[in-house]
Structures are given as C-alpha cells and as structure tokens.
Amino acid sequence: MISIKNLHAEVEGNKILKGLNLEVKAGEVHAIMGPNGSGKSTLASVLAGNEAYEVTEGTVDFDGADLLDLDVDERAKEGMFLAFQYPVEIPGVSNINFLKAALNEKRAHQGLEPIKAKDFLALVQEKSELVELAGKLKNRSVNEGFSGGEKKRNEIFQMAMLDPKFAILDETDSGLDIDALKVVSHGVNSMRSTERAFLVITHYQRLLDYIVPDFVHVLYNGKIIKTGPKELALELEEKGYDWLIEETV
C-alpha cells in the first residue's frame, strides 16, 4: 500500500523527520506513538502534502505512484485521507456541498459519472449514522461552531463518505470524551477491510483499546526507533518512552 523510505522533512528550517522508514500493507492498522515533538504530526502532514513542510530526502511509494510528486488533491483522489488533528473551520462552505464536490472530483478522476443526488443523500444518511453526526451538523458550514467531539466525528464521517484506501488519523482521539471516542472508533473499525490500511497517530494508548492495531511503532527524534505488536502500546503506557530512548542512544 505505502512504502516510506528514508524520509527527511523540515519546516521553517527545522529538521523534523530524519530518515523515517515505514511499510504499510493493505488490510493493516499501524499505530504511531511517541513523545511530543517526535514528528508524528509532521509525518501526517507530509504524507497528505501540506506545503508548509519541505521534504528534503527520501521516497514514498503509494500503490505504485510517487506520492511526493502528487499535489494534495491528487493524493486524495488516489485514495489517501487525513483526519486532521485540528479540523479547520470554513465559514460559508457547506459541509455537504463541499463533500459532494470532493466525491465527484474523485469519481471524475476514476472515470465515473457524478453521483446521483438520491444516491448521495442515501450515502450521507448511512455514513452520518455511523458516527452519529446530527443532521444539523451536516448542513452547516464546515466545522463552524462544532464542538471538539463533533469536529472529530465529522472527520470520520468525511472519511466514510470518501472511502479512501489509506487513512491517516492524526490524534483523532485527543480531547475526546469516552463516548465520542467509542463512536469514532466504531466508525473506523467498521471501515477496516482487507483492501484498506490505517495509520493511527496517537499520544494515548487508550485509543488502541478500541482501534486495535497490528503494529505499534515508536517515533522519536524523526525516526522509528521501535516496532512491536499491540502489546508494545501497553508497555509504553506503563513505562513511558525513556527506557526505549536510552536503549536507542
């Protein structure tokens, strides 16, 4: 699905990623954990194509395409999705109209006709139920006036609508109460399939009780310093990161 090799990236002259390697296959769920400032969100931004970050070295192969050569929207059209850590409020842009535009651009890219209004509404109905997103939120401006939990549910709703093959969840659990966390996790779990892969970036082990990963990676100082099974997350929760960092040094 995605193969990241020796990835180096910087923002405003600060080197953040320093030779990151990661291989994610279809059907897998990978969790990335690590202390603050280790480069977790930078990795998400770089993969999605945020221009504030500059890739200085390395390659990313996305199902045969040179990901780093694609514009932000092309990555999405090829099946990448980023659930934002801080979803952006966009007054005046309707949540639903924007999703319809996004969906139709993706369909055009795949050589499909625009979705029929009736089918679109049915899809909206089905996917919003999945994350228990109230009707009034769907029709409002993108994220405007949404609570923190509503914003995150809206991210998962958009993911479900766009049906990506590779989804990155950037600290989707941060700040969520337990009910919202369950709803969001349910949304994600219902989308797990052999054709889809997830990269779950999180600060807290708790999320991984709900979205159970196949692999846990520890990111530190711009590199992955340890990879293990899901139990690694529990070990990190208990012992912190210091023992790993010492081991590496």
């Binding site: 999605a48 194509g49 945020n50 221009e51 504030a52 514009d71 932000v72 929207d73 990555r75 999405a76 059209k77 999705f81 980023l82 934002f84 979803p87 952006v88 966009i90 007054p91 005046g92 842009v93 924007f98 999703l99 535009a101 996004a102 969906l103 651009e105 993706k106 890219h109 401006s141 993108v142 958009q158 766009l162």
Partner: peptide, 30 residues
C-alpha cells in the same frame, strides 16, 4: 488567502483552483 483552509479542502480531493473558488464564494456569500 487562508492556506490552511485551502489545504483542508484539497486534502479531501478538491483541485486547487476549485478549492480557491469555493473559498472566494464562501467569502462573498455573506
């Protein structure tokens, strides 16, 4: 221009020019 909003729309698959148009439309809608 709000680059973060632009990135958000593009990250959903909306081409740059269309995303810009969407944001300008939203700005004038009021």
């Amino acid at each position: 221009f709000d680059d973060i909003a632009l990135f958000y729309l593009m990250a959903r698959g909306i081409a740059r020019e269309n995303a810009k148009l969407m944001l300008v439309n939203a700005f004038f809608q009021e």
